[in-house]
Design a protein around this nucleic acid. Structure first.
Length: 534
RNA sequence: GGGCCUGUAGCUCAGUCAGGUAGAGCGUCGGACUUUUAAUCCGAUGGUCGCGGGUUCGAACCCCGUCAGGCCCGCCA
């Protein structure tokens, strides 16, 4: 059974109505790792809906969290906002400076700035969750009841956190963080509590009171999370392994939720995504691939497959090079399979059956719109990568594919894929081994690997190139002439060609590629090869 | 110190929850297609399932131990 169905089955035991939650702090640029959070939630939601449950995906935007530090992409002036809530400070402009104008006129905040492009990417990838801005939840008083319980009995909360997490809380710890006179959550001292007010003094010597029913502060993370489960009616939440460690925030959250008087959600811990060879992604080190950037290269369904086809506890190494080619070809293979037919065989072992069912579920979850049928394009990623490099314009590709009988016409899926393919080829991520390169000087090693028969053709090829009509057809004719004059079979001739022009033993059809090269360059290379052997 | 995950074919990984003859893709090698879009098709190759014990008629799978790698335990998906 697919992992999403396993969770859906568990949810079904707990009732019919479910809210699956995901949550991210918009402290910097979003990356592929965040996509796992959302997609994991999305896939659970789809599985639950398929199982007949009433399920909704929500995305809690943790914009009540404070800015922790001045990240490298921020101007030094952000120093004054450290400790301030992400939804309550201006967004950085293109120079990393606070954009006060937009903040004051439109309320465009730091959190909005980073959230917006991520939401755009989510839309492309077929995920449109209901948004719950956490700062708004505070201001509307949704945290009031939990906050009251915690402030009424700080000892009980302290006991839970200290026992479960095994760490000791400071003596002056209090389960509410007020905003100080400048709007920061840092450096305050709690001086008293009388519902609904928490009294404080800040580092500037100012003092005041914070109304816990109006969002004049926030709950510390370990309370914030379980409180949200309650008023948002969360029944299921996937989260990263960082929260899942023993004594981590989920463990304390379970008990704190009970103290608040509600059930914790069904949990699912997932592993992180790292960049191949570069370690974990992190916004602050700049070691990221953004969802937008990824979508420029990869069709959304293939990005979805990456998540759907990996069990949540499996660490994923995101590879924008060859790994992507393999993933895309895997998608092609899956979409051309007839699962119903495979499953109808009664000679399947339990294992085989499970494998087929999982592949089927993974493909289904990869669709951008739920319920859509996968469409096999019958053109592999590899093949398309070749064509895109050989043919400068798209029409040439379609007619070539039509000629070979692969397609009857360009489908929208395919032309969309081609657009991304071209972006990929131009990006730094495109793998060298896929890149078609015509040599500019003879490759000694390749030439010396030829036998006498093959060498014999080279001068003829060089000669024919000089006079060939410079089109794919003309060059093909020149090749034939060369073989004819050398009295060699075409196979031998081609072997010599690849050694001459690409330094390899085999390759893609040469004539169309050469036709797109500058004639004089090709002729010079051919003459040089010929001279090298004489 | 506490905890989690991973270890299966040259590579990437399924398979472990419900024990029942070791799987897929890629790669490699060979062949076909009588001249090739790294194509396609067919075939072959390939594993003491990290290691040691235990339970069992039977263990990759369950239990105990052990080694190795990665990670979490202020914040982070």
């Amino acid at each position: 059974m697919h992992w999403s169905d396993v969770i859906a089955e568990r949810l079904a035991q707990g009732g019919n109505d479910h809210i699956i939650a995901t949550g991210i702090t918009p402290s910097g640029e979003f990356h592929i790792g965040h996509l796992r959070e959302i997609l994991t939630g999305d896939m659970i939601t789809r599985a639950a809906q398929r199982a007949g449950l009433n399920a909704e995906l929500v995305f809690v935007v943790d914009n009540a969290d404070p800015l922790r530090k001045v990240y490298p992409f921020l101007d030094a002036s952000y120093e004054e906002f450290i400790g301030h809530q992400l939804g309550a400070i201006p967004a950085p402009d293109k120079d990393g400076k606070p954009d006060w104008e937009r903040f004051e006129n439109e309320g465009w905040s730091y959190g909005d700035h980073f959230l917006a492009p991520f939401l755009e990417a989510l839309k492309q990838i077929g995920v449109e969750p209901r948004l719950i801005p956490n700062l708004t939840s505070y201001r509307e008083g949704n945290f009031a009841s939990s906050a009251k319980k915690a402030c009424d009995d700080p000892g009980a909360i302290r006991e839970i956190i200290e026992r479960v997490s095994g760490r000791e809380l400071p003596k002056d710890w209090f389960p509410w963080q007020p905003l100080d006179s400048k709007g920061s959550l840092d450096g305050l001292t709690i001086t008293g509590y009388e519902y609904p007010f928490v009294m404080w003094t800040d580092q500037y010597g100012e003092s005041g009171q914070s109304d816990i029913t109006k969002g004049e502060g926030k709950l510390p993370w370990r309370l914030d999370w379980p409180a949200k489960w309650g008023f948002n009616n969360i029944t299921c939440e996937p989260f990263g392994k960082d929260h899942g460690a023993a004594g981590g925030s989920f463990a304390t959250g379970v008990e704190i939720a009970a103290f608040f008087g509600h059930e914790p959600p069904q949990s699912l811990v997932y592993e992180w995504i790292s960049l191949r060879g570069k370690g974990a992604m992190s916004s602050s080190t700049g070691n990221t691939v953004g969802p937008i950037e990824a979508l420029r290269l990869v069709p959304p369904e293939i990005l979805r497959l990456l998540i759907a086809n990996s069990k949540p506890n499996k660490a994923i190494e995101f590879d924008t090079g060859m790994g992507l080619v393999n993933l895309a070809d895997e998608y092609e293979r899956l979409s051309s399979r007839d699962f119903a037919e495979e499953l109808s065989s009664d000679e399947l072992s339990r294992r085989q059956r499970v494998q087929i069912e999982d592949a089927q579920a993974a493909l289904r979850l990869s669709m951008v719109s739920a319920g859509e049928q996968a469409e096999a394009t019958s053109v592999s990623f590899r093949h398309l990568a070749l064509l895109a490099q050989i043919k400068p314009n798209d029409d040439g590709i379609w007619s070539s594919l039509k000629e070979s009988g692969a397609i009857s016409g360009p489908s929208s899926v395919l032309s969309d894929r081609l657009t991304r393919m071209r972006a990929w080829i131009e990006s730094k991520h495109f793998p060298e081994e896929m890149r078609i390169v015509i040599l500019n000087q003879p490759d000694e090693e390749a030439l010396s690997g030829l036998d006498d028969e093959q060498r014999k053709v080279i001068p003829h090829i060089a000669a024919e190139m000089e006079s060939a009509e410079w089109t794919a057809e003309g060059i093909t004719q020149a090749f034939k002439n060369a073989a004819l004059h050398a009295e060699a079979p075409m196979r031998t001739m081609y072997r010599a060609c690849y050694a001459m022009f690409m330094g390899s033993e085999r390759g893609p059809r040469l004539a169309p590629i050469l036709a797109n090269c500058i004639r004089e360059d090709v002729c010079m290379l051919a003459r040089a090869c010929s001279a090298r052997l004489s």
